[in-house]
C-alpha cells in the first residue's frame, strides 16, 4: 500500500520577480528523496464462529494474510491454540497450517501444507494469501464451550516499533522501515461446541366418518409430533412449525401441547395457527434439555 519502493520524489521551487523593472525567473536546487520499503502486514479472520463436535478432526478456520507494505516481503506463519478467552484448547493438527491452494475457501484435499522456512509466503505490495489453520477437537469438550486458535504472520525482514529501520534490507537494498503494524499481525478464530441432538417424530392417524381408517374426503387426520433432546446441551428457544398439508383443512382449536389446549390466536400462549402465509401450526417449546420430558404436540385436519 502506498508509493512503490524506489520511487524518487523530486522537488524544485520556481521563483519569479522583477529586478529594476526586468522580470526574471529562476529555479532552486532540486531535492531528491528515495522511497524506502515500509513493512506492514495484516491478518484477517474470514470464517464465522465454527460449530464443532467432540472428537472432530481437521477443523479449519480461514484467514487472509495481506502485505500492506509498499514492497515485496516474505512472512513466516505460526498457529497458536493455547490462548485465553476460551473454554478449551483445540489440538493442533499436523501440519497445522495450509494454503487455500485451490482457492475454494474450503479446506480440501488439494490444499498445500505450510512448511516454515520452505514455502513461507512471499507477497507483493497489497497482495493477499488465504491460509487455513487446522485443529482437532478434544473428546472432553462440552456443549456451548468455545476454543480459540490464532494465526500470526511475521515479516521475515524483522519486526519492531513503528519507525524501526533495517538498513539496506528493503527491496533492492534500500532501507526497510517498520510501519504501524510493527511488521507482525495476528487474528483469532473460534470454535463452538454444538452437537445438541433433537429427535422430532411425526405420526398420523386417519379416522373416516364411517368408523374406519380410510383417507377419504371428510376423514380426520390427527397428527402427533413428539420432540425430545437426545444428547447433552440445550436446544435453545425450540419452535415447531408444521404446515397444513395441501387438500386438507385445519380443524379449528385442535392444537394441544402435552394435553393442554393452545388457542389458534396469537395471544401470548405457547402457540397459534398462523395463517399469514401457508397455514402453519406453530408451537414454542422453550429451552429443552435431556432432562425435559418428551413434548407432545397434537392437531387435526380434515381431508377436503
Amino acid at each position: 500500500m502506498g508509493t512503490a519502493v524506489g520511487t524518487i520524489i523530486e522537488n524544485t521551487a520556481v521563483v519569479s520577480f522583477d529586478l529594476a523593472g526586468t522580470p526574471l525567473t529562476l529555479q532552486s536546487n532540486t531535492t531528491t528523496i528515495a522511497v524506502a520499503e515500509r513493512i506492514d502486514v495484516t491478518v484477517t479472520l474470514q470464517s464465522p464462529q465454527t460449530l464443532v463436535a467432540p472428537n472432530d478432526t481437521g477443523r479449519a478456520l480461514l484467514l487472509t494474510v495481506t502485505n500492506t507494505g509498499n514492497g515485496t516481503e516474505t512472512f513466516t506463519l505460526l498457529m497458536d491454540s493455547v490462548i485465553g478467552g476460551d473454554n478449551f484448547d483445540p489440538t493442533p493438527a499436523v501440519p497445522d497450517i495450509y494454503f487455500d491452494t485451490d482457492a475454494s475457501g474450503d479446506f480440501s484435499a488439494g490444499d498445500q501444507a505450510y512448511a516454515p522456512g520452505v514455502n513461507d509466503p512471499n507477497l507483493n505490495a497489497d497482495e493477499s494469501i488465504s491460509v487455513f489453520i487446522v485443529n482437532d477437537i478434544p473428546g472432553t469438550v462440552l456443549n456451548g464451550q468455545t476454543g480459540r486458535s490464532e494465526l500470526t504472520a511475521t515479516s521475515a525482514t524483522g519486526t519492531g516499533a513503528p519507525g524501526t529501520v533495517y538498513a539496506n534490507q528493503g527491496d533492492g537494498g534500500v532501507n526497510a522501515v517498520i510501519g504501524v503494524t510493527g511488521g507482525e499481525a495476528a487474528d483469532t478464530g473460534e470454535y463452538l461446541v454444538s452437537d445438541v441432538l433433537v429427535n422430532v417424530v411425526k405420526a398420523q392417524l386417519v379416522s373416516d366418518s364411517f368408523g374406519g381408517n380410510e383417507p377419504v374426503p371428510g376423514a380426520t387426520l390427527t397428527y402427533t409430533i413428539t420432540v425430545d433432546v437426545a444428547s447433552s446441551g440445550t436446544a435453545a428457544a425450540s419452535v415447531v412449525r408444521d404446515t397444513i398439508p395441501a387438500l386438507t383443512t385445519y380443524v379449528p382449536n385442535s392444537i394441544t401441547l402435552n394435553g393442554a389446549a393452545i388457542s389458534d390466536l396469537t395471544d401470548g400462549d405457547a402457540g397459534e395457527f398462523d395463517t399469514t402465509g401457508t397455514p402453519t401450526v406453530v408451537v414454542r417449546l422453550g429451552d429443552l434439555t435431556q432432562a425435559d420430558p418428551v413434548q407432545t404436540i397434537v392437531f387435526q385436519v380434515l381431508i377436503d
Partner: peptide, 28 residues
C-alpha cells in the same frame, strides 16, 4: 528516504543578493 505515511517538510529560502530591491516576488 521516506516511507509511505511519512511527511516531508520543504523549506524554500530565497535571498536577494543584488544591490536593489526585488518586487513581485512569487515562489511556486
Amino acid at each position: 528516504i521516506l516511507v509511505p505515511g511519512e511527511s516531508v517538510f520543504y523549506t524554500i529560502t530565497f535571498t536577494n543578493v543584488s544591490d536593489q530591491p526585488a518586487d513581485n516576488v512569487v515562489i511556486t
